[in-house]
Every structure is written in structure tokens, then in C-alpha cells.
């Protein structure tokens, strides 16, 4: 376990903590400002969404913190960081509906700009279900099954770019599946479930391929096998949560429709046979 840069000096240590904590803290502050603005207008923002934000940002902060980043030099640590940063945190953050909050609280001009971005062709293409599936699977295959992973340790810039790409891709997946925030190309529940099954199958296959092939770029064979099993079962756990999130959204939506139907049938007189025209 030698060679971990835990003792790389307090200055870089403090910089590491700053870099790890600054993005989640800024994001959390912006979110709280939005919740406060709504509250001043007399609208309460749901507590579960606030809790989801807090949990998601805490996950991101922990995954980015220097001890975890240091542990990520070994493959199991890297997998744990990957699972939290690109799957668990995006799931929690998409449940907190930050885009909805922004659209409701931003000043007029910023809101119009945000809407223009959401309706742009680029976002429309990037959030389409087939694009998200291909992007996610292609990114995972490129990162783990090509020499790319070995190059990450040689270039900090490449490291940052690839990780940012993985986080953004993970966010696209979560936002598509959870479906609370407005998306230009909204998919139905069956499509979202199919996306989830295909992606989960892709993760399972990738984990087993890594388990069998143990690419040398990822580390010692025993380490890679431990990481692959963690990828398999940890991925399952987050994907189980994603399935619950997809169905919970369906449950709420159909429940609203059911209650509306009940109200209508209570008001309307009982009709026998096909309803006649007005």
C-alpha cells in the first residue's frame, strides 16, 4: 500500500479538500437560495427533495475527498468512487429536481436563457434515450477495455476531463430515468425501464469481462477481480434504487390520474352503455 499520495504535504492536502468541498458547497448554497426564494413567495419546496440534495452533495464531497481519491489508485477504490460519483450522487441529485427549482426561482432573463438551453437541439439530442444508452455504454467500454485507463495516471488534465465526462454521462442517465425535472424529449415509463435494463445488463457484462480478462492497465489481477465484483453488486444496488425511482414517479402520476377519474365519476351521473355525444 506504499506510494499513496496521502503524505504529499499539507499544502496540496488543503488544496485537495478545497477542490473536493467547493463544488458541493456552492451547489448546495445555490439550491438553498432557490428554496428560500420560493419560501418568500409562500411556496414550500418538498422536504424529501431538500434531503435528496443534501445526501447527493455529501456523496459527491466524500467521493471527491483526498482520502477517497488516494484510495482510488487501487482498482476497488476506483470502482467505489465511480459508483458513488457517477451513479449514486446523480440519482440523488436528479431526485432533488434542481432544474425545476431553477425554472421557478430564476429572474426572468436567466430563466429564459435556461429554457433556451433546455429546448436547444443539442440538449434534445443528448437527452434522447438511445443516445444516452450508447453514450454510457460506449464511455464505459472506452474507459475500461482500452488503454485509456492506463493513460489517466500520466495526465492530470486527461484524468479530469474523463472523470467529468463520466459524471455528466451518469447525470444524463439519472435525469432520463428519474424524470422529475423537465426534459426536451420525455420518455415514457416502459422506455425508461428498457433503458435501465439495457444499461444494467451492460454494467453486468462489463464487470464479468473485467473479472475474466483482468486488464493489466487496471492493476494486479486480484485487485481487478475484487473491483469487478464490487462493480457488479454495487452497480446492482444503485440500479435497484433507480428502478424504484422510475416506478415511484409512475405511481404518483397514475395516482393523480386515478383520483381525478374518481372525482369525475362521483360528480357525473351513472351512465349505462356508451356515452352519447353532447
Amino acid at each position: 500500500m506504499s506510494g499513496t499520495p496521502l503524505t504529499a504535504g499539507t499544502a496540496t492536502g488543503q488544496l485537495g479538500w478545497l477542490l473536493a468541498l467547493a463544488p458541493p458547497v456552492v451547489a448546495g448554497a445555490l439550491y438553498l437560495a432557490g428554496v428560500g426564494a420560493l419560501a418568500r413567495n409562500g411556496t414550500a419546496w418538498p422536504v424529501p427533495r431538500r434531503l435528496a440534495t443534501g445526501a447527493g452533495l455529501c456523496c459527491a464531497a466524500v467521493a471527491l475527498s483526498p482520502p477517497v481519491t488516494a484510495a482510488a489508485h487501487l482498482f476497488p477504490g476506483h470502482v467505489a468512487q465511480h459508483l458513488v460519483l457517477t451513479m449514486l450522487a446523480p440519482l440523488l441529485l436528479s431526485l432533488s429536481a434542481p432544474v425545476t427549482l431553477a425554472l421557478r426561482t430564476l429572474p426572468r432573463r436567466s430563466r429564459r436563457a435556461l429554457l433556451a438551453v433546455l429546448r436547444s437541439r443539442a440538449v434534445r439530442v443528448l437527452t434522447a434515450a438511445p443516445v444516452v444508452v450508447v453514450l454510457e455504454l460506449w464511455s464505459l467500454a472506452a474507459l475500461y477495455l482500452t488503454p485509456l485507463h492506463g493513460l489517466l495516471h500520466t495526465s492530470p488534465v486527461l484524468h479530469l476531463v474523463v472523470h467529468a465526462h463520466m459524471v455528466v454521462t451518469g447525470c444524463l442517465v439519472s435525469w432520463l430515468l428519474v424524470g422529475i425535472d423537465p426534459m426536451p424529449a420525455r420518455s415514457g415509463t416502459p422506455v425508461r425501464l428498457a433503458v435501465l435494463v439495457v444499461l444494467a445488463a451492460g454494467h453486468a457484462v462489463l464487470a464479468k469481462v473485467l473479472y475474466a480478462a483482468t486488464p493489466a492497465a487496471l492493476g494486479a489481477p486480484a485487485e481487478v477481480r475484487r473491483g469487478a465484483e464490487l462493480l457488479y453488486y454495487g452497480g446492482d444496488l444503485v440500479e435497484l434504487l433507480l428502478a424504484v425511482a422510475v416506478m415511484a414517479e409512475w405511481w404518483r402520476r397514475t395516482g393523480r390520474r386515478l383520483r381525478a377519474e374518481e372525482r369525475r365519476s362521483l360528480r357525473a351521473p351513472v351512465v349505462v352503455g356508451p356515452p352519447s355525444g353532447p
Binding site: V197, V198, A200, A201, H203, A204, V205, K208, V209, E239
Partner: peptide, 13 residues
């Protein structure tokens, strides 16, 4: 491998 992965993912979903 692909069949196993799909069935695995499908079963718990």
C-alpha cells in the same frame, strides 16, 4: 455473457 447480464438485470427490475 450478454444473455446472463440481460436476465440478471431484467429479473430484479
Amino acid at each position: 455473457l450478454v444473455s446472463d447480464g440481460l436476465f440478471h438485470a431484467f429479473s430484479w427490475t
